[in-house]
Amino acid sequence: MPFKSYLEALNKEFENHKYGENPAELYEPISYIMSLGGKRLRPLLTLMSANLWLYNWQKVLKPAMAVEVFHNFTLMHDDIMDQAPLRRGQQTVHEKWNTNTAILSGDVMLVAAYELLGFAEDRHFKLVVKRFNKTAAEVCEGQQLDMVFATKADVKKEDYIEMIRLKTSVLLGFAMELGGILADADEDSVRLLNEIGVNLGLGFQLNDDILDVYADPEKFGKQVGGDIIENKKTWLLLDAIEKAKGTEDGKKLEAWLKKKKFDATEKVEAIRGIYDKFEIRAEAEAEAKKYFEKAAEALNKLAVSEDKKVLIRSFAEQLEKREN
């Protein structure tokens, strides 16, 4: 079963799904952000996980969609908090409409996610909602930590890992365990699916941070060096601060971080040069690889035949080697 079949089925469901009609100003922004695409990683993981036990994976399409709707709800609100002008190369909802509309439409998206989860069979529904609620709260905790880190001076690399675990990774973990729950997998398998997803999420986010600094601009799809320009406390920056402490490069790095007015290109080149000197990219790649390996170890423990694991292995490899 190639990824394409899952993706085509998901896209068709999203195209045909109605979030509501009146007032149009409330529902049009939802259709708009959902039409901007994205990788659909989370619902794909749900479908692939369910298909480890189910032949009729189509029966979990609607609950799988819930994960993507929730993810886009968080993006809509994140864009407001970050005052971001663009999302996937297009105007953000608060820019295209206004902030109040974006807040309210986002709220309705959360309701829509619960509605889609309601397509789970009755015997699964209570557990699915319990696990989703825990995950949703953790995503909000991660977002709050991300905002705290913006002004906190003593952020450590382990703090950053915990923040991205909450903000990004737990939703991938839930996406995979959701597939297992809906396919009547045993508790140990569901736990392992969550472990696989969380570790894939950590590796995915660390790779995203690396790409933000080193990607080919034509393949990346957004501004390379954006995290550097914003002084975002990524694993790379925190590692560089740690490695360069007490050196001339450390002083240069600190000076760049304090500058209010600067040439963006010059800043990116200067800080990338410090990263290169202290081999930060290689360290970050090794850190990301560690989490992809943990995901592979958990997948190895999963009590299903090896031929059924092939697609998830292939998907994980694509996440690890992606260039955008």
Rank of each mutant, 00 (worst) to 15 (best):
S5H: 08
H17T: 15
G20D: 08
E21R: 09
L26V: 06
S31V: 00
I33H: 10
G37F: 15
K39Y: 11
R42F: 09
K62T: 00
M65R: 09
F70I: 04
F73N: 05
A84V: 06
L86Y: 14
Q90N: 15
H94P: 13
E95Y: 05
N98Y: 04
G106S: 12
L110W: 07
L117Y: 15
L117R: 09
A120F: 02
D122W: 01
D122G: 04
E138T: 13
M147L: 15
I161C: 03
S169W: 07
G173D: 02
F174S: 09
L182N: 08
D186L: 08
L192A: 09
L193C: 15
E195L: 08
I196W: 12
V198C: 11
G201V: 14
L211M: 11
L211C: 10
A215F: 02
D216L: 10
K219D: 10
F220W: 04
G225D: 12
I228P: 03
N231P: 11
K232F: 06
K232A: 02
D239Y: 03
I241E: 04
K252M: 05
E254M: 00
A255T: 02
K259W: 04
A264F: 00
E266F: 01
V268C: 03
I274Y: 04
A288N: 04
A295S: 07
A296E: 13
A298M: 03
E306A: 13
K309N: 05
A316K: 11
A316M: 14
K321E: 11
